[in-house]
Write a protein that binds this DNA or RNA. Sequence first.
DNA 1: GCTCATGTTCCCCT
DNA 2: CAGGGGAACATGAG
Length: 257
Amino acid sequence: MPELPDVEGYRRFFQRHGTGKRVTGVWADRTELRNTNPTRLARELTGRAFERPRRHGKWLICPAARGGPMLVLHFGMSGELEWRTRRAGHRHDRMILEYADGDLHFRDMRKLGGVWLAEDERALAAATGPLGPDAAAIDAARFEELLASRRGGTKAALMDQSFLAGLGNLLVDATLWRAKIHPRRSIVTLSRGEARRLFDAMKAVIRESMPRGQVPTDQAFLTAQRSKGSRCPRCRAALSRETVAGRTTWFCARCQV
DNA sequence: GCTCATGTTCCCCT
DNA sequence: CAGGGGAACATGAG
């Protein structure tokens, strides 16, 4: 379930379970490794300890101490981390970091995620591809500049990781609903006030999502309304479902202009 | 059987 | 070049 808040949750999880102690072994499924192989991954990481992981958008970057490489994780649509103190596999395990006190499992049912090894910032950039500023870190002035540099639809822009990193389909719909902006609204027609509303809505959605480590599913949130017959939590109008920017999009045609 | 799924990439079109 | 649409990827759930 990985958008920015989910990956932030995994970052904290990795910090708690995977850092500050020596890796005793590594198992990996070849198909999930994007720029390395199981043998090389094990050779590079065994005996090393990870330092504090960082996150940029939906990417989790875990540097190994003492000049070791960075382990780079992307969770795709179904990636997750799990900590296990007893040796037991799961059919969707794609990589396992072994420690003296347990194993950190990276699972990815649909295999749309991946694992990279990067020896420096340049290799990291090659793995992630171009990324815009992190949505959780960007400030209002920079966000406004960013919008001014872009044409096209608002949802398409917010979904574009090279434009702004971290928002996915659910967070973008929640943000647009909160800001009362139509997903197809052309960016160049946004007023100064609307741009600010968009920024504030995005920040509010992220702020509420971050501590939970997932996109909220409260009834007052749009995330809970992604099914037939659902209504706008604000005005009770029937919600619209359309494909925008290639993704299923739920919005309120009455509130969102 | 069918449709849809919180992501990214690649190819094609305007 | 910029932006958008659609298919593909792999594996389920309903």
